[in-house]
Protein backbone atom coordinates (compact mmCIF):
# COMPACT_ATOMS: atom_id res chain seq x y z
CA UNK A 1 0.00 0.00 0.00
CA UNK A 2 0.96 3.62 -0.40
CA UNK A 3 2.49 5.35 2.55
CA UNK A 4 0.03 7.37 4.56
CA UNK A 5 0.70 10.36 6.80
CA UNK A 6 -2.09 11.18 9.21
CA UNK A 7 -1.80 14.84 10.09
CA UNK A 8 -3.57 14.95 13.40
CA UNK A 9 -4.40 18.11 15.33
CA UNK A 10 -5.26 17.18 18.91
CA UNK A 11 -7.61 18.78 21.42
CA UNK A 12 -5.49 18.21 24.53
CA UNK A 13 -1.78 18.87 24.99
CA UNK A 14 0.14 15.63 24.61
CA UNK A 15 1.79 16.23 27.98
CA UNK A 16 -1.53 16.00 29.85
CA UNK A 17 -1.65 12.63 31.59
CA UNK A 18 -4.43 10.37 30.22
CA UNK A 19 -6.04 13.28 28.37
CA UNK A 20 -3.32 13.84 25.81
CA UNK A 21 -0.73 11.12 26.40
CA UNK A 22 -2.76 8.32 24.73
CA UNK A 23 -2.68 9.84 21.25
CA UNK A 24 1.03 10.41 21.55
CA UNK A 25 1.37 6.70 22.32
CA UNK A 26 -0.74 5.89 19.25
CA UNK A 27 1.44 8.08 17.06
CA UNK A 28 4.51 6.20 18.30
CA UNK A 29 2.95 2.78 17.75
CA UNK A 30 1.57 3.29 14.25
CA UNK A 31 4.85 3.40 12.31
CA UNK A 32 6.25 0.48 14.28
CA UNK A 33 3.23 -1.69 13.67
CA UNK A 34 2.92 -0.77 10.00
CA UNK A 35 6.61 -0.99 9.14
CA UNK A 36 6.54 2.72 8.44
CA UNK A 37 3.76 2.64 5.85
CA UNK A 38 1.59 4.56 8.30
CA UNK A 39 2.69 7.64 10.21
CA UNK A 40 0.87 10.08 12.41
CA UNK A 41 2.12 13.60 13.00
CA UNK A 42 0.36 15.19 15.94
CA UNK A 43 -0.13 18.93 16.21
CA UNK A 44 -0.56 20.35 19.69
CA UNK A 45 -3.78 22.35 20.30
CA UNK A 46 -3.80 25.57 18.35
CA UNK A 47 -0.75 24.79 16.28
CA UNK A 48 -2.73 24.07 13.15
CA UNK A 49 -6.22 24.57 14.43
CA UNK A 50 -7.98 25.04 17.76
CA UNK A 51 -9.59 22.14 19.61
CA UNK A 52 -13.16 23.06 18.76
CA UNK A 53 -12.43 23.33 15.04
CA UNK A 54 -11.11 19.80 14.64
CA UNK A 55 -14.32 18.19 13.40
CA UNK A 56 -14.81 20.86 10.76
CA UNK A 57 -11.19 20.62 9.62
CA UNK A 58 -11.26 16.83 9.31
CA UNK A 59 -14.65 16.63 7.66
CA UNK A 60 -13.76 19.19 5.02
CA UNK A 61 -10.42 17.48 4.38
CA UNK A 62 -8.27 20.43 5.45
CA UNK A 63 -6.51 17.86 7.63
CA UNK A 64 -7.00 14.12 7.25
CA UNK A 65 -7.50 13.27 10.91
CA UNK A 66 -7.95 14.70 14.39
CA UNK A 67 -8.18 13.70 18.04
CA UNK A 68 -10.82 15.15 20.33
CA UNK A 69 -13.85 14.16 22.36
CA UNK A 70 -17.38 14.16 20.98
CA UNK A 71 -18.56 16.36 23.84
CA UNK A 72 -17.01 19.26 21.96
CA UNK A 73 -19.58 18.86 19.20
CA UNK A 74 -22.72 18.94 21.31
CA UNK A 75 -23.52 22.38 19.91
CA UNK A 76 -23.55 20.82 16.45
CA UNK A 77 -25.22 17.54 17.44
CA UNK A 78 -26.78 17.39 20.91
CA UNK A 79 -26.40 13.59 21.01
CA UNK A 80 -22.63 13.93 20.72
CA UNK A 81 -22.48 14.46 24.48
CA UNK A 82 -23.64 10.88 24.98
CA UNK A 83 -20.57 9.51 23.18
CA UNK A 84 -18.21 11.46 25.38
CA UNK A 85 -19.43 11.28 28.97
CA UNK A 86 -22.85 10.77 30.48
CA UNK A 87 -23.84 12.12 33.92
CA UNK A 88 -24.76 9.16 36.12
CA UNK A 89 -23.69 7.18 33.10
CA UNK A 90 -21.75 3.97 32.65
CA UNK A 91 -18.29 3.33 34.01
CA UNK A 92 -15.55 2.47 31.54
CA UNK A 93 -16.28 -1.28 31.34
CA UNK A 94 -19.99 -0.87 30.75
CA UNK A 95 -19.41 2.03 28.35
CA UNK A 96 -17.06 -0.03 26.19
CA UNK A 97 -19.47 -2.96 26.33
CA UNK A 98 -22.19 -0.76 24.88
CA UNK A 99 -19.90 0.79 22.27
CA UNK A 100 -18.25 -2.36 20.98
CA UNK A 101 -20.84 -5.06 21.64
CA UNK A 102 -24.04 -3.05 21.89
CA UNK A 103 -25.29 -0.54 19.32
CA UNK A 104 -22.95 2.19 20.52
CA UNK A 105 -20.52 2.24 17.63
CA UNK A 106 -23.11 2.08 14.88
CA UNK A 107 -25.07 4.93 16.49
CA UNK A 108 -21.85 6.90 16.97
CA UNK A 109 -20.98 6.63 13.26
CA UNK A 110 -24.61 7.20 12.28
CA UNK A 111 -24.58 10.51 14.15
CA UNK A 112 -21.74 11.85 12.01
CA UNK A 113 -23.16 10.40 8.79
CA UNK A 114 -26.68 11.73 9.19
CA UNK A 115 -25.38 15.17 10.08
CA UNK A 116 -23.35 15.25 6.89
CA UNK A 117 -19.88 14.96 8.39
CA UNK A 118 -17.44 13.16 6.12
CA UNK A 119 -15.58 11.39 8.92
CA UNK A 120 -14.89 7.89 10.15
CA UNK A 121 -14.96 7.77 13.95
CA UNK A 122 -12.81 5.45 16.07
CA UNK A 123 -12.83 5.58 19.88
CA UNK A 124 -9.18 5.95 20.77
CA UNK A 125 -8.94 6.43 24.54
CA UNK A 126 -11.15 6.19 27.60
CA UNK A 127 -10.47 7.53 31.07
CA UNK A 128 -11.92 6.82 34.47
CA UNK A 129 -13.96 9.27 36.60
CA UNK A 130 -13.20 12.95 36.96
CA UNK A 131 -13.43 14.71 40.28
CA UNK A 132 -16.67 16.44 41.06
CA UNK A 133 -15.07 19.77 41.78
CA UNK A 134 -13.23 21.97 44.23
CA UNK A 135 -15.01 24.00 46.91
CA UNK A 136 -14.07 26.26 49.75
CA UNK A 137 -16.85 25.09 52.03
CA UNK A 138 -18.54 21.83 52.85
CA UNK A 139 -21.57 20.98 50.80
CA UNK A 140 -24.01 18.84 52.76
CA UNK A 141 -27.38 19.88 51.42
CA UNK A 142 -28.60 21.32 48.13
CA UNK A 143 -29.07 24.59 50.06
CA UNK A 144 -25.28 24.86 50.44
CA UNK A 145 -24.90 24.96 46.67
CA UNK A 146 -27.46 27.69 46.03
CA UNK A 147 -25.97 30.98 44.97
CA UNK A 148 -22.49 29.65 44.27
CA UNK A 149 -20.65 30.74 41.16
CA UNK A 150 -19.04 27.69 39.67
CA UNK A 151 -17.06 26.82 36.58
CA UNK A 152 -18.69 23.75 35.07
CA UNK A 153 -18.70 22.32 31.58
CA UNK A 154 -21.20 20.52 29.39
CA UNK A 155 -24.33 18.62 30.45
CA UNK A 156 -23.23 18.74 34.09
CA UNK A 157 -23.52 22.53 33.94
CA UNK A 158 -27.22 22.24 33.07
CA UNK A 159 -27.66 20.08 36.17
CA UNK A 160 -25.80 22.54 38.37
CA UNK A 161 -27.95 25.38 37.07
CA UNK A 162 -31.04 23.50 38.10
CA UNK A 163 -29.45 23.20 41.54
CA UNK A 164 -29.33 27.00 41.77
CA UNK A 165 -25.67 27.34 40.88
CA UNK A 166 -24.61 30.09 38.54
CA UNK A 167 -22.24 28.44 36.10
CA UNK A 168 -19.57 29.78 33.81
CA UNK A 169 -17.24 28.00 31.45
CA UNK A 170 -13.94 29.81 31.87
CA UNK A 171 -11.08 28.36 29.82
CA UNK A 172 -8.54 26.24 31.74
CA UNK A 173 -6.00 29.00 32.21
CA UNK A 174 -8.44 31.54 33.65
CA UNK A 175 -9.82 29.27 36.34
CA UNK A 176 -7.05 29.50 38.92
CA UNK A 177 -7.00 33.30 38.91
CA UNK A 178 -10.77 33.52 39.11
CA UNK A 179 -10.88 31.09 42.04
CA UNK A 180 -8.03 32.75 43.87
CA UNK A 181 -9.64 36.16 43.64
CA UNK A 182 -13.13 34.86 44.30
CA UNK A 183 -14.67 35.74 40.94
CA UNK A 184 -15.95 32.17 41.08
CA UNK A 185 -16.42 30.09 44.23
CA UNK A 186 -15.87 26.61 42.89
CA UNK A 187 -14.74 24.72 39.83
CA UNK A 188 -14.52 21.33 38.24
CA UNK A 189 -11.96 20.51 35.63
CA UNK A 190 -10.68 16.96 35.22
CA UNK A 191 -8.98 14.12 37.06
CA UNK A 192 -6.77 14.73 40.12
CA UNK A 193 -3.54 14.37 38.13
CA UNK A 194 -4.69 17.11 35.74
CA UNK A 195 -6.35 19.34 38.34
CA UNK A 196 -3.04 19.28 40.16
CA UNK A 197 -1.39 20.92 37.16
CA UNK A 198 -3.83 23.81 37.46
CA UNK A 199 -2.87 24.23 41.10
CA UNK A 200 -6.34 24.00 42.68
CA UNK A 201 -4.91 22.21 45.71
CA UNK A 202 -3.00 25.35 46.61
CA UNK A 203 -6.06 27.48 47.21
CA UNK A 204 -9.11 25.23 47.64
CA UNK A 205 -10.02 23.29 50.75
CA UNK A 206 -12.49 20.59 49.66
CA UNK A 207 -12.20 18.27 46.71
CA UNK A 208 -15.47 16.45 46.12
CA UNK A 209 -15.99 12.99 44.68
CA UNK A 210 -17.43 11.05 42.93
CA UNK A 211 -17.57 12.83 39.58
CA UNK A 212 -21.20 12.01 38.93
CA UNK A 213 -21.09 14.11 35.77
CA UNK A 214 -18.26 12.16 34.18
CA UNK A 215 -17.80 8.57 35.32
CA UNK A 216 -15.93 7.73 32.13
CA UNK A 217 -14.87 9.88 29.21
CA UNK A 218 -14.31 8.60 25.68
CA UNK A 219 -11.90 10.26 23.24
CA UNK A 220 -12.14 9.83 19.51
CA UNK A 221 -9.89 9.67 16.49
CA UNK A 222 -11.66 11.21 13.50
CA UNK A 223 -10.39 10.30 10.04
CA UNK A 224 -11.58 12.00 6.87
CA UNK A 225 -13.60 9.39 4.98
CA UNK A 226 -11.88 9.97 1.65
CA UNK A 227 -8.51 9.55 3.33
CA UNK A 228 -9.82 6.46 5.10
CA UNK A 229 -11.01 4.99 1.81
CA UNK A 230 -7.58 5.41 0.28
CA UNK A 231 -5.93 3.38 3.02
CA UNK A 232 -5.40 -0.35 2.51
CA UNK A 233 -7.36 -2.85 4.56
CA UNK A 234 -4.24 -3.59 6.54
CA UNK A 235 -3.63 0.05 7.32
CA UNK A 236 -7.23 0.52 8.40
CA UNK A 237 -6.98 -2.48 10.69
CA UNK A 238 -3.78 -1.16 12.20
CA UNK A 239 -5.39 2.19 12.99
CA UNK A 240 -8.51 0.60 14.45
CA UNK A 241 -6.64 -1.88 16.58
CA UNK A 242 -4.04 0.57 17.78
CA UNK A 243 -6.88 2.75 18.97
CA UNK A 244 -8.47 -0.23 20.67
CA UNK A 245 -5.18 -0.94 22.39
CA UNK A 246 -5.02 2.72 23.31
CA UNK A 247 -8.31 2.38 25.20
CA UNK A 248 -6.61 -0.16 27.46
CA UNK A 249 -3.47 1.91 27.70
CA UNK A 250 -5.31 5.13 28.56
CA UNK A 251 -7.44 3.70 31.30
CA UNK A 252 -4.49 1.86 32.81
CA UNK A 253 -2.44 5.03 32.83
CA UNK A 254 -5.28 7.11 34.24
CA UNK A 255 -6.05 4.56 36.97
CA UNK A 256 -2.39 4.34 37.95
CA UNK A 257 -1.73 7.98 38.65
CA UNK A 258 -4.66 9.49 40.56
CA UNK A 259 -4.18 8.13 44.08
CA UNK A 260 -0.70 9.52 44.41
CA UNK A 261 -1.88 13.03 43.59
CA UNK A 262 -4.85 12.70 45.93
CA UNK A 263 -2.55 11.65 48.75
CA UNK A 264 -0.27 14.60 48.06
CA UNK A 265 -3.23 16.97 48.05
CA UNK A 266 -4.30 15.56 51.41
CA UNK A 267 -0.83 16.20 52.77
CA UNK A 268 -1.21 19.79 51.64
CA UNK A 269 -4.36 20.13 53.69
CA UNK A 270 -6.99 19.39 51.06
CA UNK A 271 -9.96 17.49 52.43
CA UNK A 272 -11.30 14.82 50.15
CA UNK A 273 -15.05 14.40 50.46
CA UNK A 274 -17.58 11.97 49.08
CA UNK A 275 -21.01 13.37 48.23
CA UNK A 276 -23.65 12.21 50.71
CA UNK A 277 -26.72 10.40 49.44
CA UNK A 278 -28.91 13.48 49.68
CA UNK A 279 -26.63 15.34 47.30
CA UNK A 280 -26.19 12.47 44.86
CA UNK A 281 -29.94 11.94 44.72
CA UNK A 282 -30.51 15.63 44.18
CA UNK A 283 -28.00 15.73 41.31
CA UNK A 284 -29.56 12.67 39.70
CA UNK A 285 -33.07 14.02 40.00
CA UNK A 286 -32.05 17.25 38.24
CA UNK A 287 -30.12 15.26 35.65
CA UNK A 288 -33.25 13.32 34.75
CA UNK A 289 -35.04 16.63 34.24
CA UNK A 290 -32.27 17.69 31.86
CA UNK A 291 -32.58 14.38 30.01
CA UNK A 292 -36.29 14.88 29.63
CA UNK A 293 -35.73 18.25 28.01
CA UNK A 294 -32.99 16.93 25.74
CA UNK A 295 -34.90 13.87 24.57
CA UNK A 296 -37.92 16.00 23.82
CA UNK A 297 -35.87 18.52 21.86
CA UNK A 298 -33.77 16.20 19.69
CA UNK A 299 -34.99 12.92 18.17
CA UNK A 300 -31.51 11.49 17.70
CA UNK A 301 -30.56 12.28 21.29
CA UNK A 302 -33.72 10.41 22.22
CA UNK A 303 -32.75 7.46 20.04
CA UNK A 304 -29.28 7.14 21.52
CA UNK A 305 -30.52 7.71 25.04
CA UNK A 306 -33.16 4.98 24.69
CA UNK A 307 -30.66 2.53 23.30
CA UNK A 308 -28.13 3.25 26.02
CA UNK A 309 -30.82 3.06 28.69
CA UNK A 310 -32.09 -0.28 27.39
CA UNK A 311 -28.57 -1.66 27.40
CA UNK A 312 -27.97 -0.39 30.91
CA UNK A 313 -31.22 -1.84 32.23
CA UNK A 314 -30.11 -5.24 31.00
CA UNK A 315 -26.63 -4.72 32.43
CA UNK A 316 -28.07 -3.83 35.84
CA UNK A 317 -28.76 -7.47 36.66
CA UNK A 318 -25.14 -8.29 36.06
CA UNK A 319 -23.83 -5.17 37.73
CA UNK A 320 -25.87 -5.64 40.89
CA UNK A 321 -24.61 -9.17 41.37
CA UNK A 322 -21.20 -9.43 39.81
CA UNK A 323 -19.12 -6.94 41.77
CA UNK A 324 -17.98 -6.75 45.35
CA UNK A 325 -19.19 -3.65 47.15
CA UNK A 326 -16.67 -0.82 47.21
CA UNK A 327 -15.84 -0.90 50.90
CA UNK A 328 -12.37 0.50 51.19
CA UNK A 329 -13.37 3.96 52.31
Amino acid sequence: ADRVLLKTPIAFGSHLPALGTPIKWVSEQLPVMSDNTLKMKIYEPGKLVGAKEILDAVSSGKVNSGYATAGYWQGKMPAAALFSAVPFGPEAGEYMAWLYYGNGMSLYQEMYDTNGYNVKVIPCAIISPETSGWFNKEINTPEDLKGLNMRFFGLGASVMEKMGVSTSQLPGGEIFGALEKGAIDASEFSQPAIDKLLGFHKIMKYNYFPGWHQQATVFELLVNKDAWGKMSGGQQAIVENTCKASMTNAIAEGESMQFEEMAKAQENGVEIRYWNDTMLNAFEEKWLEVVEEKTAADPFFNKVWSDLSTFRKGYDLWEANAFLPRTTK
Binding site: G13, H15, L16, E44, G172, G173, E174, F176, G177, E180, L197, L198, G199, K202, I203
Partner: peptide, 22 residues
Protein backbone atom coordinates in the same frame (compact mmCIF):
# COMPACT_ATOMS: atom_id res chain seq x y z
CA UNK B 1 3.00 41.19 35.35
CA UNK B 2 -0.01 38.97 36.12
CA UNK B 3 -2.61 38.45 34.89
CA UNK B 4 -0.80 37.51 31.73
CA UNK B 5 -2.15 35.53 28.83
CA UNK B 6 1.39 34.56 27.95
CA UNK B 7 2.00 32.93 31.32
CA UNK B 8 -1.37 31.20 31.11
CA UNK B 9 -0.43 29.62 27.79
CA UNK B 10 3.03 28.70 29.01
CA UNK B 11 1.61 27.04 32.12
CA UNK B 12 -0.79 25.14 29.91
CA UNK B 13 1.94 24.03 27.51
CA UNK B 14 4.25 22.76 30.21
CA UNK B 15 1.81 21.59 32.81
CA UNK B 16 3.00 24.15 35.37
CA UNK B 17 0.77 25.84 37.90
CA UNK B 18 -0.60 29.16 36.66
CA UNK B 19 -0.44 30.41 40.24
CA UNK B 20 3.29 29.70 40.52
CA UNK B 21 4.01 31.47 37.27
CA UNK B 22 1.84 34.47 38.15
Amino acid sequence: IPPSIMLVIMADQLGLSVGDLF
